[in-house]
């Protein structure tokens, strides 16, 4: 079985080698600002070059992200902006009551996610931060991970870091999370017995059937996916990958996915945050 899968995978990839994608050399420019979508990787990186998922898409898909009106992900960021100043919870407060202008107070936050949280003494994703603040400060019900509200808020907060380089800390108290994420990345799982690395490190740029494999970078999340016809979180994408290799996915918000999110972000250090981005 293992040989068969390996053979068929090899055949799929071999068939498609040499099929260049038109979009690979394009530069992402939004409102006159050029985004870093490709850079040389540092010496200790397993990658030679760090490449945003945007580069792996077709010209038509790429173009939709270059115009904030045409990019349907911006609908969610706008909804997030509405929610930012909407009063919620027993305290009768909105996000804006404490955090003021998001373009000041939230600038750079997404670029450093996930991040150690002192109070809770654990690694926090952006979703964790939002729900913690809702419960702690607003005395409001936490949002579901994949709810429209949560996606709108992570889009809006993420947008405040758009264009800034991904810059996550991997040392100090999060070092063990980083190691755990790395271990997950290289561990083969599921009926197809594959690790993240088998596609996204060894075969990025190749085709898997009709799909162009990317490095699995997280700098554009949450993303509007044409397939989903809507927005999705990083953990939703992880779950999709695990379903595809016929593994039992971890839960959204689980320690496993949070650790993996940190490790993946560290592999994309220096890429511009593209949130909210658009993919196929």
């Amino acid at each position: 079985m293992k040989t068969l899968v390996a053979l068929s995978l090899a055949a799929t990839l071999a068939l498609s080698a040499g099929q260049a994608f038109a979009g690979e050399d394009s530069e992402l420019v939004i409102d006159g600002e050029t985004f870093v979508t490709k850079l040389d990787a540092p010496a200790d990186s397993p990658l030679a070059e760090i490449i945003s998922g945007w580069r792996f898409r077709s010209n038509e898909t790429q173009e939709l992200q270059t115009d904030d009106f045409e990019n349907p992900a911006m609908i969610f960021a706008e909804y997030g902006e509405e929610l930012w100043s909407r009063v919620d919870g027993a305290e009768g407060k909105s996000c804006a009551d404490c955090h003021g202008d998001a373009s000041e107070s939230m600038k750079g936050l997404r670029a450093s996610m996930p991040k150690w949280h002192e109070g809770k003494a654990t690694l926090f994703t952006l979703e964790d931060h939002i729900n913690w603040s809702r419960e702690e400060h607003q005395k409001a019900e936490p949002w579901k991970w994949e709810s429209q509200e949560m996606l709108a808020m992570t889009s809006y907060i993420g947008l405040q870091s758009r264009g800034m380089p991904v810059n996550v800390a991997t040392d100090g108290p999060v070092a063990e999370w980083y190691e755990k994420g790395k271990e997950l990345y290289y561990t083969r799982v599921g009926q197809l017995d594959m690790a993240c690395a088998n596609c996204h490190e060894t075969n990025y740029g190749n085709m898997i059937r009709a799909d162009h494999l990317s490095q699995g970078q997280t700098n554009g999340f949450p993303v509007y996916r044409m397939k989903w016809q809507g927005m999705g979180s990083i953990h939703r994408r992880f779950k999709g990958c695990m379903d595809n290799i016929r593994a039992t996915p971890y839960k959204r918000g689980s320690d496993e996915f949070t650790a993996l999110e940190l490790y993946l972000a560290s592999r994309g250090q220096g890429l511009s945050v593209e949130t909210p981005s658009l993919r196929n």
Binding site: T12, C199, M207, A210, D211, K227, G240, C241, D243, N244
Partner: peptide
């Protein structure tokens, strides 16, 4: 229309 490899 491509069928996708791993839509996820």
């Amino acid at each position: 229309v491509t069928i996708g490899g791993c839509g996820g």
